[in-house]
Amino acid sequence: MDGAAALEKLVPVLAAFGGGVLLARRKVVPAEASKAFADYAFLFAVPCYLFGNIYASDLGALFDWRAIGGYTAAAALAVAVLVCASAAYGVREPRAVALRVMAGVQVNTAYFAVPVFITVFGTAAPIFPVLLFQVCVLSLVVIAIMELGRAGAGAGSPGQRLRRALTASLTTPLVLACNAAILLNLVSVHVPRVALDGAAFVGDSASPVALFALGLHLGRLGLDVRGTTREELALIGFKCLAFPLLTWAVCGAVFGVRGEWLAYLVLIAAMPTPQNLFIFAQRYDVGVDLSASLVIKSSVVSLLLIPVWLQTVAS
Rank of each mutant, 00 (worst) to 15 (best):
A263D: 11
G20Y: 10
L310Q: 09
G19I: 06
L82F: 10
L23E: 06
V295Q: 06
S299Q: 03
A281C: 08
D64H: 06
L218E: 02
A113D: 01
G227R: 07
V175G: 02
E8N: 14
A45S: 08
W261K: 05
S302H: 05
E231M: 12
V257I: 03
S293D: 13
L196D: 14
H190Q: 13
R100Q: 13
S205T: 14
L183C: 12
G256I: 03
E32L: 05
R283H: 11
L174Q: 11
V250L: 09
E232D: 11
K9E: 12
P208Y: 04
V288Q: 15
A314G: 15
S86V: 02
L290F: 14
A181M: 02
V225E: 09
G198Q: 11
V288K: 15
V130W: 07
G215Y: 04
S57V: 01
V114E: 03
V46I: 15
G70M: 05
V266K: 12
R220E: 15
L77N: 03
V91G: 07
G70D: 04
R193I: 07
F255Q: 01
F51Q: 07
V83N: 04
V107I: 14
L304W: 00
S57G: 07
F42G: 01
I118M: 00
A177M: 01
T167M: 15
C48K: 11
A199S: 11
L184E: 03
F51V: 10
P115T: 01
D39F: 08
L304K: 02
S205Y: 03
A234T: 06
P244R: 05
